[in-house]
């Protein structure tokens, strides 16, 4: 008979939830958003923004963090919420552009839809699929937004596309490092589900 997974202490403490996410889940989301934002910022500042290795590395770190976070909080809609919170705080505090929001949000919705179509985030590969689709679709949608901004000189889209492609390569590698990190964390008992 298979042993059922041990629920986390907060889940035991609050059996009757009035929300889809518990306060514990929301705190995990906030902490990981801050960590992902700052670690990518530090790598970008330390390595120089246009350094291709830095571009790879910061996307790799962001995606790895996102995969670990989604394995911790496997409620549907978590990816959309993560993106929403990230963009809101970026706009208010870090000078993020409003124009990035539609592409990021669109990518997150597509990622959630892909995970839902594959059986939900609770499936073993659900979070990886959601993040993979999110990365790919948000990058493509960002390119569309770049075209809107640079449509008077379409030639300028070539370096933008190269930078986005490099970023996506980093994100793609981040999927594997994320899975590996989750495997290690599960082995250590930190990620339980």
């Amino acid at each position: 008979m298979p042993i059922p997974p041990v629920p986390s202490p907060p889940a035991l403490l609050s059996p009757a939830r009035t929300l889809r996410w518990s306060a514990h889940d929301l705190v995990v989301l906030g902490v990981f958003s801050a960590a992902a934002k700052l670690s990518t910022l530090v790598v970008a500042l330390a390595g120089g923004g246009i350094n291709p290795v830095t571009l790879l590395l910061k996307n790799l770190i962001f995606t790895t963090m996102l995969v670990v976070m989604l394995y911790k909080v496997r409620t549907p809609g978590t990816l959309v919420l993560f993106v929403l919170v990230n963009m809101l705080v970026s706009l208010l505090l870090l000078g993020g552009s409003v124009t990035l929001l539609p592409s990021m949000l669109g990518g997150a919705l597509l990622g959630e839809a892909a995970a839902f179509a594959a059986g939900g985030l609770s499936r073993p590969w659900g979070p990886v699929l959601a993040v993979g689709v999110y990365d790919l679709s948000s990058k493509i949608l960002s390119l569309g937004m770049s075209w809107l901004t640079l449509r008077e000189s379409p030639g300028m889209l070539v370096p933008v596309a190269i930078i986005v492609a490099l970023g996506y390569a980093g994100s793609f590698m981040g999927l594997f490092s994320g899975v590996r990190a989750v495997r290690e964390l599960r082995h250590a008992g930190i990620v339980r589900s």
């Binding site: 996410w21 306060a23 705190v27 919420l81």
Partner: peptide, 15 residues
């Protein structure tokens, strides 16, 4: 909504 407010607050406080 609370589900946006709490993570945003945690994020701002933890930066």
């Amino acid at each position: 909504p609370f589900c946006v407010y709490l993570p945003a607050t945690v994020m701002i406080r933890f930066i």
